[in-house]
């Protein structure tokens, strides 16, 4: 059902945990739909210098969180925001159709964290002006 890559990231996820003095925190999903994803980011200038996550969810939700944090870490905010859920899917060598929403969740968790950072610091990030995390994506 899952690719090797998904199983690797599920069994040994990268960047698990919390950042105590995080600059932004994003949380999406709910227990009702079976997935909750929480991301913590640390911003250094315009670079996402650190990112950690905690996820309640299926294997693909955990693997999506793990690979997304890998992809994002060290990138500029602009570059990181340019990543889409498809990049997550591709990096995992694919996800089953019913699980694609997990990658969307990862994209949204990160965007929520950046929005939280921007709101706290009164920074205008054009890419996020219209961003509303989609609660009911499945």
């Amino acid at each position: 059902m899952y690719s090797k890559k998904v199983m690797e990231h599920f069994m040994e996820p990268h960047n698990v945990g919390e950042i105590e003095d995080a600059d932004g925190i994003g949380e999406v999903g709910n227990a009702k739909c079976g997935d909750i994803m929480k991301m913590y980011i640390k911003i250094d200038g315009d670079i996402v210098s650190d990112i950690k996550f905690k996820t309640f969810g299926c294997a693909s939700a955990i693997a999506s969180s793990s690979i997304a944090t890998d992809l994002i870490k060290g990138k500029t905010i602009t570059d990181a925001l340019a990543l889409t859920n498809q990049d997550v899917v591709d990096s995992l060598d694919g996800l089953p159709p019913v699980k694609v929403h997990c990658s969307v969740l990862a994209e949204q968790a990160f965007k929520s964290a950046v929005k939280d950072y921007a709101d706290k610091n009164n920074i205008d990030i054009p890419e996020l002006r219209d961003f509303v995390p989609d609660e009911d994506h499945h």
Binding site: M7, F10, G34, D35, F56, G57, C58, A61, I62
Partner: peptide
């Protein structure tokens, strides 16, 4: 605090 599928796949491991 654990999702079922993650549990099943971990056991499968």
């Amino acid at each position: 605090r654990i999702e079922g599928e993650a549990l099943i796949l971990s056991l499968d491991h």
